[in-house]
């Protein structure tokens, strides 16, 4: 593992987490905020493939499970983001992703991520919730994430790409 890339990825996740918890809570829609941490994991998947994305997804998910306002069973976001890393990393790697494919990947990842989180909640009976409320939150979440994609994904993917050649020669 290249330490520079690892540090960059972890820094991106921490920055996304803090922004998501403090800044975007002011613009939340029915309490739903853009899931920036998920966007970083998706960017990793698109640039570097499934394996790094799944590891980063696990780390980011554990952070999301443990960072202060969180009060749910730990490991739920970790599992959701590992699945997101897998989904985003399995997008075709041999062509540079187009804008359309990036947006589609984000939408699919956001849907899968929030759904996996909700499903583990139903299995663990963490909060007892109705399907209608869950679907509403999932839908708003997908909307937010797609809306933020043009601002976040090019930045994060560009940063990861710039760090990529160092890895290829190493």
């Amino acid at each position: 593992m290249n330490p520079g890339r690892t540090v960059a990825a972890v820094l991106a996740v921490v920055a996304a987490l803090v922004l998501q918890l403090t800044v975007f809570s002011h613009v939340s829609w029915a309490g739903v905020v853009p899931n920036l941490v998920l966007l970083v994991v998706v960017a990793t998947g698109l640039v570097r493939g499934a394996q790094p994305a799944m590891v980063l997804g696990f780390v980011a998910g554990v952070l999301l499970d443990l960072a202060p306002p969180a009060d749910h069973v730990a490991g739920r976001w970790a599992l959701a983001l590992v699945v997101v890393g897998y989904v985003a990393g399995r997008v075709r790697q041999d062509v540079r992703p187009t804008a359309g494919s990036v947006v589609a990947t984000v939408a699919a990842s956001s849907f899968v991520g929030t759904s996996v989180f909700a499903l583990t909640g139903i299995v663990l009976q963490d909060p007892a919730l109705g399907v209608g409320e869950v679907l509403q939150v999932v839908a708003i979440g997908v909307f937010w994430d797609v809306l933020l994609t043009p601002f976040v994904l090019p930045l994060v993917m560009g940063t990861f790409r710039r760090l990529e050649p160092a890895r290829a020669t190493a």
Binding site: Q20, S25, S28, V33, P69, A70, D71, L129
Partner: peptide, 10 residues
């Protein structure tokens, strides 16, 4: 200072 996202359902 921080609001838990509704995606976490808590």
């Amino acid at each position: 200072v921080g609001l838990g996202p509704a995606q976490s359902f808590s």
